[in-house]
């Protein structure tokens, strides 16, 4: 389990330093695959429908559909670079600092060392880095990648919470997530690349 969690931390962190949308999308796919592997470790009963819903959610929807949904639009933009955090020392320090804060937080709330504590640390890393990406992006593609990173962090957090949601609730959550991806694609097709600059929504009607 620890190796999976270390790998997940790596795929959450490393794409931030490489200014490429391909790496960002591959990173999302890798996050989905690793989350599915962790989910299978925690719920190995393949006879239970809930396990299959979990695996479809993590491996298929988060690992495949989500990155593929964003890919064609990313290709159309043809940007040679697509930094999802600003490529400077301050941002990189903030990103690494957030990882340290996340693991320190896990030490405080999970006093016993082990997989449970590490899962909290990695999940908090995912949430914090997702928020960092969101706070530094103006364009919809980068913001969507930030949201999906945040959602992956939340998914890991739920995996380790010790509670199994009812299968109906989990399926409904999955449907809502897929509907969100459909909307994301629609926005990517209709929004300008730099939404904030194009909008100026705060200007007065006059």
């Amino acid at each position: 389990m620890s190796a999976l969690l270390v790998a997940l931390t790596a795929v959450m962190l490393l794409p931030l330093f490489l200014g490429s949308w391909r790496v960002s999308l591959v990173g999302l796919a890798a996050q989905g695959a690793l989350l599915a592997a962790i989910g299978y470790r925690l719920h190995p009963d393949t006879a239970a429908p809930a396990t299959w819903v979990l695996l479809v959610d993590l491996a298929v929807v988060r690992g495949l559909i989500a990155p593929l949904a964003l890919r064609p639009v990313a290709v159309v933009t043809r940007q040679a670079r697509h930094d999802i955090i600003p490529p400077n020392l301050l941002s990189w320090t903030l990103a690494v600092g957030m990882v340290l804060v996340a693991f320190r937080f896990a030490d405080v709330v999970e006093p016993v060392a082990g997989d449970a504590r590490m899962m909290v640390g990695v999940a908090a890393t995912g949430v914090l880095l997702g928020l960092l990406v969101l706070s530094t992006q103006n364009g919809p593609l980068g913001q969507m990648i930030g949201v999906l990173r945040l959602e992956n962090g939340i998914a890991l957090f739920e995996l380790g919470s010790g509670a199994e949601p009812a299968i109906g609730v989990h399926v409904a959550q999955l449907v809502v997530f897929v509907a969100t991806l459909v909307l994301f694609r629609w926005y990517l097709h209709t929004l300008p690349v730099d939404a904030a600059a194009a909008a100026a929504p705060g200007e007065e009607a006059a």
Binding site: L191, A199, A200, P201
Partner: peptide, 30 residues
């Protein structure tokens, strides 16, 4: 056209807001 951006911002903020609520519910469960 600006309404598209406003719509996207609404969805973005709502997704983050509801994401925070989901993390909070996870904390309560723990």
């Amino acid at each position: 056209p600006a309404s598209r951006v406003a719509s996207w911002r609404y969805l973005l903020f709502s997704t983050v807001a509801l994401g925070l609520v989901l993390v909070g519910l996870g904390c309560v469960t723990r």
